[in-house]
């Protein structure tokens, strides 16, 4: 049995397209089927937010302190810095002195930023 598949060109990517169609088709079909086959019941209590069976208090979309956002963003920043250091540490010998200087510059910039936010008082929680 022989298959006629072009050696190169766009045709070689056809199996990927078919896989995407099959995957999307499965999701759409199963979602629609469960939607129409399954029994449903709707009431005011059913549609309420689930808070372990206790009545929910207030609105979830209330304003809260900007400090949470600042701390979260700063965490992400320094988290990324640490992640960058892993591949650098693995290739430490190959990258040599140049890599060391580059990484120290990168860290230096971030430390300057850290000093700046401490001076600005972004991490003060009072």
């Amino acid at each position: 049995m022989t298959f006629l598949i072009a050696e190169n060109g766009v045709q070689t990517y056809l199996p990927i397209l078919f896989m995407f169609i099959a995957a999307m088709g499965f999701i759409v079909t199963s979602m629609l089927a469960t939607h129409y086959l399954g029994p449903k019941r709707k009431s005011k209590i059913k549609d309420e937010a689930f808070e372990c069976g206790i009545e929910s208090q207030g609105n979830a979309r209330t304003p809260f302190s900007i400090k949470y956002f600042l701390v979260a963003i700063l965490f992400v920043l320094f988290d990324v810095e640490v992640i960058f250091m892993y591949p650098w540490a693995v290739n430490f010998k190959n990258l040599g002195v140049l890599g060391l200087i580059e990484m120290f510059m990168f860290m230096g910039f971030l430390v300057l930023g850290l000093l700046y936010i401490i001076k600005k008082g972004a991490l003060k929680w009072e």
Partner: peptide
């Protein structure tokens, strides 16, 4: 009892 009842009511059919 009302908590149990609300948990039951918020379950999806069947």
């Amino acid at each position: 009892a009302p908590v149990l009842r609300q948990v039951y009511e918020q379950m999806a059919e069947p």
